[in-house]
Design a protein around this nucleic acid. Sequence first.
DNA 1: CTGAAAGCGCTTACAG
DNA 2: CTGAAAGCGCTTACAG
Lengths: 349, 349
Amino acid sequence: MADPAGPEPIPAPGKPRATIKEVAARAGVSLSTASRALTGRGYVSAAVRERVKKAATSLAYVPDDTARNLRQRVSRVFGVAVSDLRDPFYVDLAAGISQQCRRNNYAMMLADGGGLEQRELEAAETFVSLRVAGVILTPMSKNASEFIVNHGVPVVEVDRQFASGSCDGVVVDNRRAAYDVTHALTELGHRRIGLVIDEFTWTTGRDRLYGFRQAIAEAGLPENAGVVITSRLDVPSAQHTIVKLLSRRDRPTAIFAANNLLAEAVWRAAETMKLQIPDELSLVCFDDVRWMTMVRPAITTVAQDAVAMGETAVDTLLQRIRRPARPAYTVVLNATVVERGSSAPPPAR
Amino acid sequence: MADPAGPEPIPAPGKPRATIKEVAARAGVSLSTASRALTGRGYVSAAVRERVKKAATSLAYVPDDTARNLRQRVSRVFGVAVSDLRDPFYVDLAAGISQQCRRNNYAMMLADGGGLEQRELEAAETFVSLRVAGVILTPMSKNASEFIVNHGVPVVEVDRQFASGSCDGVVVDNRRAAYDVTHALTELGHRRIGLVIDEFTWTTGRDRLYGFRQAIAEAGLPENAGVVITSRLDVPSAQHTIVKLLSRRDRPTAIFAANNLLAEAVWRAAETMKLQIPDELSLVCFDDVRWMTMVRPAITTVAQDAVAMGETAVDTLLQRIRRPARPAYTVVLNATVVERGSSAPPPAR
DNA sequence: CTGAAAGCGCTTACAG
DNA sequence: CTGAAAGCGCTTACAG
């Protein structure tokens, strides 16, 4: 799609931008006065203020925030690091953070780690180096959070927590929600239930496992009624693992997938094996994402409001900046089971 | 989830960070020497370099990039503004941009506009103010791009173009792809085809409409064989509009949805009306997103590789920075129809 | 009410 | 090979 008028020259990137010095000169005032007129702090007569503003406009002056921040020792940028932008949960989180930042006149520096701790650490260093006013992250260890906090920058851990002593957090009650959704399965009469999960070392995985186990135990089922399957967190490899699981003679009659990606893998596995949900296999999971209301039957799941988590994280950070000395605290948001059609009593033997 | 050890004090955000001055002092050298040792530019003896580096490490020194950038007149941050993070297409785009930024050691400042031109303009001003090295955006008009370019910051427009004379662009051949997918419909024998679309004023909407019309015309069909339905770009309201369309006696036997959100709306509309796809209604669309391979039948669509578009946009920006004087150019990526099961010959009357 | 001066943390010619 | 000085663009006490 070439420009019909032919390529025009692009203004050279080196093109000098107007500085406050030039604004001051054009308005015939000193630097200090121009600054006061533009920022609104300090005294300046109405007439002069007008003249300065006019000069600024006519020069298309845009203040250099980096210079301003350097001087003022603050910036209006938050650093945000999420595990993986390919996962809809993190996307909703980022969307929530983004809009709440904007509402409060903060810009958002976003990094996504592709699930690698090393990248998270690099992002942490970048954020410190760029002198952001605060950081929100979905931590993979305590290292990034502590590094940032040690450099005097407030951190909010969201989704999971590793450094709850030294920074604030926003999470859901994973144990409770996992309990609820598993309990519903035992109530339906399932006696062999799979948990597909990718990790146990974060608070999320650990607590979802606890909740799962607790529901199994309270139903009076033997410990081996709960079969825990570990998988890497990507759909194809999880799908492969699950096909193997479902091929066993003693396969579970119900599966609890610990997040939306694993749920997708279970769903696809069932499809390729032509296993009917819920008649032959019940499926429940964590995270409520788009496709779960588009497939048939729709999927029963634990809905976490990721957008709200993101917004809350920003609010928490703002609070922390306002009151630095307050002890660290954790906000626990509600997560509720939304019943749809993907679970049913186990098939008769 | 309270910390079992009880809340510890959080390091005060105002906590002073080590500066290069302190590093120099501890190493017993001057500021200049410390700087040279740390940046690697300029002469410094091996012994001194070691001493300085050791001092930096022991002080957990992290250089202030904002100060460095101010001095050097460059930053390693790109500004990115996408229309809407709730739309999976833009998310993939952002993911591609994000990873390519990281590979090239750039940080990404992300803003999402929620589809409002005003927000795009605000983001543009923020980016200029923050002195980013370049901007990538999915423009909603020529205003933002031109504003940024006029301030000497290079811009790449992606997905659509408004200022192709004054900045680079990365797009797909929308006309061609729309033609192909519509042509497949006329070949199947459809004589009444709906185009559901949200705008015609951007290059995307305009070209998709052109391609659609062209295919209708070339099939020798009367102009009114193509029925164009305009809708707002959100699923519920589009769904409403489409239900009305499909309730008409002369309803189309096939629909081309101009993007993934509208496709979702059509799909949901068909479902609520219990219209079988593809037996009673063929559905094809633009954008290839997750759910399209999860519903049955899977959806035939024009697949644009949004991640690759994002990566290409970053590469383009990098090129532009390297060679500012080169005439503006546009990269046109391929977009191909992926046939799945959602289209079939029209039902017999 | 206004302006001259210092300084935020860094880098970079320039002298030595 | 090293250090003193200037300066990036801004803000902010401080004098007047």
